[in-house]
Write a protein that binds this DNA or RNA. Structure first.
Length: 807
DNA sequence: GACTAACATTTTTTT
DNA sequence: AATGTTAGTC
């Protein structure tokens, strides 16, 4: 398993546009421009006014960005330290930095190439004193310092839970989920609690404003900022302290933003502040170059505003726009399919991708009976492609709309021995045990971190229950001290209303923390984790457990220790400070290898295990969202059914439907040579089988680009008794194979490939009729528990020889 | 305070 | 189907 810390060198071996570093190119602007098309060249050379590069899928936008940077240095006399490039993901940042380094060499060091969030953390840590001043107006005594914790969505939600409980909000009427999302939205819109209160027009909005105010105060008291704060506070800082803004504007004369279509309002404002305007005094505005594609905006649900890219020319009146429409990835057939689908969205800037790669193969369509059939088709087709030497496993990806769809594919792939890897789902750093340990580390690093302190207070169980927690919390509130301080007092002299048992438990806990802090002072992070796993009894509890999942948890913790160890070992060789005007902006705020630095890394770069080592030759399974930015020679996009994709919740909402269509566009344009689109007539969702009509997007793919491998009219077995099945047209053409007199019964003797699902009715030669209660295991180890009524409940191995027939 | 049973919930998720 | 949350009991 790759970890985040091998990023800088190992890099990702993702299939990606190739970069061809050539020595010497960096000194010669003409060389730099040689292998660019006219539009790309224009984007690289353009200087002076703000620049919008509308980069269609596969049009070489990273190439444009990296070459533009190199060109700035080679031909326009820019200093590397004057360049800031902002991306959304760490992967993109690392890739860009690598590719720039290939072009310009080690000078790339002094550029800032980072994500929005890392960049803001860097600024905020540096300016923490000023931020604290900023916060003093909103919180009585903000405890914020440069070692602040970074709260992710989960931490934020926990904090909202605490606040909502405090305000005695009805959790049915005001679900934490909603409250947290609303607060996040407000922050993305740069609205303060006061703004929110002022605008509130209904109960919910008023409650949200209350929650927001209290939430912010508690964050400040916990010496913490959440993800949204990182952006918002930076904007507020730059706006409230012009001298700070000017400092950064003097430093960064060139600002580049990747994936501009995914920016939210706060990020938009941040870019504006960084760039500055004519009237912002002191410095000329920096040169701005943004790159993006409105058609690939699929994160509106997270606050991204397509408006930012659509109205760039209005926001920046002198702006120049360049369209990149030549695609270097896919066949023309695939691009035409993508163009046709995205055309269904109204009000977009028209853009037609084209390619010199030739027509290529037609898009293949397949209508499956159900999700198992769909997966079997995909597996069979993969087998064939690989056998024929048309593709390797590495070349192949399977996309689906939602994560739960991955299961069927895993089952079939295991059964057929196809190597695969699932990207996404529950990520490493979101696993409970990992978060628990990180919570300990966070508390050790930042004693005021209330959320994480409360998380570990009784984990593992040590007799400090809800009751005791409530007492401490109320006391803290009354005395206007932090939860941590109240807890310390409870440990010492006790608290009114706290029984001695709980008090003893708290004393023990506080002593434990003190002991662990000693360890932090003396050893590196990995050893601290080891120590805390022992001393808290956390590992012991897992090892003693009889829950089979807990073994995996122990493994995950071992992995975490490995990650920590690698982190300690790879302290960066001290960054050479670029001579001259760079002032002290680049100096590290957190000591290398420190616990704080580790935690920051882990908070900001938490997609470690989504980085594939693709050497291994595996089929890649992932959601359409995760697929963005990637490419594969062969793509299977599955589940093209109304209700699945587009998702049910998008069907009634035009804006959401448009986003789903963009998702379809993203999915299609990932394919280089071959594209398969499939759907299933019937699919089990939440245990219940559903019949879904074809995705409306499927009908938008021109028929002449599509070749149906199997269409609705020619599916094999008619549905048994799908009551609500509409237009059950295809009874003709009985298609061979199942011609065993009996209509839809499938025997396991003939086909091991058929799985039982809960609720299936079966017939057993000995036990008679039964209903499947549960299923376990995969492939050869698969078993099912079946209720045979009078014959009793039996657990059976689902091997080929079992005398069982599915009805 | 800990354990258990009923209950609800279930899109996507760069940081 | 699987998981987390909450209410009720020991």
């Amino acid at each position: 398993m790759s970890t985040l810390f091998d990023l800088p060198h190992g890099g990702s071996s993702w299939p990606q546009e190739s970069s061809e570093p050539r020595a010497g190119r960096e000194h010669d602007p003409d060389q730099l421009l040689a292998d660019l098309n006219p539009q790309q060249r224009e984007a690289v050379v353009h200087g002076g006014s703000p620049l919008l590069v509308v980069a269609g899928a596969g049009s070489g936008k990273t190439k444009v960005l990296t070459h533009r940077i190199a060109y700035l240095l080679a031909a326009r006399g820019a200093h590397p330290g004057e360049i800031m490039a902002i991306t959304f993901t760490n992967k993109a940042a690392v890739e860009m930095k690598e590719r720039v380094t290939d072009l310009v060499g080690p000078r790339a060091r002094s550029m800032w190439v980072s994500t929005f969030h890392s960049m803001c953390v860097r600024v905020l840590r540096r300016e923490a004193e000023t931020v604290r001043e900023l916060l003093a107006g909103t919180s009585s005594d903000p405890r914020l310092n440069s070692n602040f914790s970074i709260y992710d969505a989960d931490d934020a939600k926990r904090m909202v839970t605490l606040v909502a409980r405090d305000l005695e909000l009805d959790s049915k009427r005001y679900p934490v989920r909603t409250l947290a999302a609303e607060v996040s939205n407000l922050k993305n819109e740069l609205l303060t609690p006061a703004d929110a209160a002022e605008r509130a027009g209904n109960d919910l909005e008023r409650k949200v404003a209350d929650v927001y105010a209290s939430y912010q105060r508690r964050l400040a008291d916990s010496n913490a900022l959440d993800f949204d704060d990182l952006i918002m506070r930076t904007v507020q800082l730059l706006r409230a302290y012009p001298e700070v803004a000017e400092h950064y504007r003097r430093r960064f004369r060139h600002v580049m933003v990747d994936e501009y279509q995914d920016t939210n309002h706060a990020q938009y404002a941040l870019v504006r502040e960084l760039v500055g305007t004519r009237d912002s005094g002191g410095v000329e505005p920096a040169e701005l170059c943004v790159v993006g594609d409105a058609d690939q905006s699929i994160y509106a649900f997270r606050g991204a505003t397509i408006r930012n890219i659509e109205e760039f020319e209005r926001d920046y009146p002198q702006a120049r726009t360049i369209l990149l429409e030549q695609n270097y990835r896919s066949t023309q057939t695939i691009l035409s399919a993508a163009n046709a689908v995205i055309r269904g969205n109204t009000g977009r800037r028209d853009k037609r991708l084209w390619s010199e790669a030739g027509e290529g193969e037609p898009v293949v369509g397949y209508v499956a009976d159900n999700e198992h059939d769909e997966a079997a088709f995909v597996a069979g087709e993969i087998d064939r492609l690989v056998d024929d030497g048309e593709a390797t496993f590495n070349d192949i990806a399977v996309f689906y709309r939602t994560n739960n769809q991955s299961r069927v594919f895993e089952e079939v792939f295991i059964r057929r021995g196809l190597p695969y890897r699932v990207i996404g789902g529950v990520r490493f750093y979101e696993r409970r045990e990992v978060r628990d340990v990180l919570a300990y580390l966070r508390v050790l690093d930042n004693p005021e971190d209330t959320v994480n302190l409360r998380r570990i207070l009784n984990v593992p169980k040590r007799g400090i229950g809800d009751r005791a927690q409530a007492v401490v919390s109320v006391y803290a509130e009354q005395e206007r001290i932090s939860f941590a301080a109240a807890l310390r007092r409870a440990a010492g002299e006790g608290l009114p209303g706290l029984n001695t048992r709980a008090q003893r438990a708290i004393s023990g806990f506080v002593a434990l923390l003190d002991e662990l802090r000693e360890a932090v002072a003396q050893s590196d992070v990995a050893d601290v984790i080891e120590t805390l796993l022992e001393r808290t009894g956390y590992r012991g509890e897992l090892e003693a457990s009889d829950d089979p999942q807990d073994a995996g948890r122990v493994e995950n913790l071992t992995e975490l220790i490995t990650v920590a160890r690698e982190f300690s070992e790879m302290r960066a060789p001290s960054e050479e400070t670029s001579a001259g005007e760079s002032e002290d902006v680049d100096a590290a705020v957190l000591p290398d290898g420190s616990l704080s630095a580790f935690l920051e890394r882990v908070s900001l770069v938490a997609d470690a295990d989504s980085l594939p080592d693709s050497e291994e030759g595996m089929i890649t399974l992932m959601t359409l969202h995760t697929a963005k930015g990637l490419e594969f020679p062969v793509v299977f996009s599955t589940g093209w059914e109304d209700g699945v994709f587009p998702h049910m919740r998008a069907l009634g909402e035009p804006a959401e439907l448009a986003e789903e269509r963009r998702l379809a566009y993203v999915g299609i344009t990932r394919a280089r040579r071959r594209l398969y689109l499939s759907r299933a007539l019937m699919r089990s969702a939440w245990g219940q089988p559903m019949t879904n009509p074809a995705s409306r997007f499927l009908g938008e793919v021109p028929e002449d680009l599509l070749r149906w491998r199997r269409s609705e009219a020619e599916r094999s077995a008619p549905q048994v008794r799908s009551s609500g099945s509409r237009g059950g047209g295809g009874f003709d053409r009985g298609s061979g194979g199942a011609g065993n007199g009996r209509s839809s019964a499938q025997s396991f003797k003939d086909s091991v490939a058929i799985k039982l699902a809960v609720g299936d009715r079966v017939n057993h030669d000995k036990y008679g009729l039964g209903t499947v209660l549960t299923t376990e295991g995969e492939g050869a180890r698969a078993t099912a528990t079946i209720d045979f009524g009078a014959s009793g409940t039996v657990r059976l191995m689902l091997i080929g020889s079992v005398p069982l027939t599915k009805l």
